[in-house]
């Protein structure tokens, strides 16, 4: 009995936001995977590093992991590929409901846990791209956190001596 599961790859491209993927189970670890209308007959099964693929005679034990639902990272010798996948029906549902807004360059977020050594800006200051805004010490090393875009500082949420966690918003600004 052949079943077909339908997914979409989220491309991040507004004009062409998804690419359809259909996976038909052929039994014995064999699948017909159709992407953009082209069908690939493969053998695939989970392994201790990700997924083993046999595509014709091309054999790859591909290293893949997921750290958040739907978000996949393939670690290839040639580099890293990040992919966002979703069930097709969820995508349709989301299209109807409207998507969520994304985070932009208007926030400086701490990438790490540590202690603030100093903050070099105040609300109202204008900053250049690449300017150091906050220094966070972790593992006894000072890490300079820099502005990713030019703009004006709207708010500074931390002061020297504060403990910060990964993902915490340190500085907000209005991007020029």
């Amino acid at each position: 009995m052949a079943q077909t599961a339908r997914y979409v790859l989220l491309t991040g491209d507004d004009d062409n936001p998804t690419r359809p993927i259909a996976i038909e189970d052929l039994g014995d670890d064999r699948y017909a995977v159709t992407i953009d209308g082209k069908t690939h007959e493969i053998t695939a099964y989970p392994t201790d590093r990700g997924v083993a693929l046999l595509r014709g005679v091309r054999s790859r034990d591909v290293q893949v992991e997921s750290r958040a639902p739907g978000e996949w990272i393939a670690h290839l010798p040639a580099g890293r590929v990040d992919l966002k996948l979703m069930e097709e029906r969820l995508w349709r549902l989301r299209s109807v409901l409207g998507g969520a807004g994304g985070a932009g360059d208007d926030k400086l977020v701490s990438p790490m846990a540590g202690k603030v050594v100093l903050t070099s800006v105040q609300p109202g200051d204008s900053v250049e791209e690449g300017q150091t805004l906050v220094i966070v010490e972790a593992m006894k090393m000072e890490n300079e956190l820099r502005a990713t875009a030019a703009g004006t500082v709207a708010a500074v949420h931390v002061a020297a001596g504060d403990t910060v966690e990964p993902g915490m918003v340190l500085v907000e600004f209005e991007v020029e």
Binding site: I23, I35, G50, V51, R60, V62, V64, G70, A78, L85
Partner: peptide, 25 residues
């Protein structure tokens, strides 16, 4: 300045991620 990942590698990544997602589902 790494060269972009070639089409065959990229297809491996996509197939593997799609299959991993499928197995998880």
């Amino acid at each position: 300045n790494r060269p972009p990942i070639d089409d065959e590698d990229h297809l491996d990544a996509l197939l593997a991620a799609a299959m991993a997602f499928h197995f998880q589902q």
